[in-house]
Amino acid sequence: MVLPPVAVVAVFIGFPVGAAIAYTLGRAGGPNSTVALLAQRQHIVHHGVTTAAYREVLGNPHVRADLWATVWVTLVTIVVVVLLSWAIGLYLRLSDTRISRIVSALSVIPLFIPVVIASYAILTFYASQGFIKTLAYHLGWHSFPTLGYTLTAVAIGEIWVNVPFGVLMMSSGLNSVPNALIEAARDSGASLPRTVRSVLLPMNVIPTVIVATFTGIYVLGSFTVPYLTGPSAPNLMGVSMANFFSAFNQPQQAEVMAMIVFVLAVGIGTIYVWANVRASKRASITS
């Protein structure tokens, strides 16, 4: 029964990824021949492998700038999304008022909006004639920087898109902590902040790791948000990959960049898998 999806993934993802790896190492035969036919600046070998394409891409200062931009935006987004999700999740866990219901509704709005539109909306909101500039103008801050088409806008967009997942994940985790465990801590003399630190935090490591890793992986591979809201250069790897492919007609270089991002994403993914395995090991002992 598990065969169909695994087969689909193997044929349409596993195989192409394998081909992509071969291509980045200089092998242009087989499934790569069509793409390789018209490509420019390829590094091809017929026997063995070559790392020439990697060396070229990593030696390119523009690509390196893109890579740093990607890492920077990814880290900022992870940190902000984790903090926001915790703040909102805690607020929702500890209070049930009209305001908390409004907050919970607000924080999942992005789920309802296609990313293309969200990116476009965020661009216009922070653009040179957008709301934020207008507001700053009326507050007398005429030199307020334009955020549209900057990496800051990209980070804002990525945060906006990832907040709902974070909040859902964190509130689900926080809500699964029984009230009695929180009350027992209060009873022992812990203040609310201390209860959060000693009970809620250690019991919600997994959801936090999940939020951080999925956000990170999402940002690393994202295209739409940086394409619509970001600067022309340096921008995230997703955008420059597409540029190398369609604008410069250098698919091999694009694939090399994809591999670099993939390695970063797998690195993050390892943390996720490790955390999950650790958790289920512990669960299997306890039950």
């Binding site: 029984p178 009695a180 465990l181 009350e183 027992a184 801590a185 209060r186 009873d187 022992s188 003399g189 812990a190 203040s191 000693s198 009970v199 250690p202 019991m203 306890t286």
Partner: peptide, 29 residues
């Protein structure tokens, strides 16, 4: 508030913190 009261409660389902050992649980307060 509960943390300021000279009371201590034993909860119906014990409410032991699962991520702490017996020692940690007892010594928390």
């Amino acid at each position: 508030p509960p943390e300021k009261r000279p009371t201590a409660m034993v909860f119906q389902n014990y409410a032991l913190w699962p991520h702490m050992t017996v020692f940690k649980n007892v010594s928390f307060g």
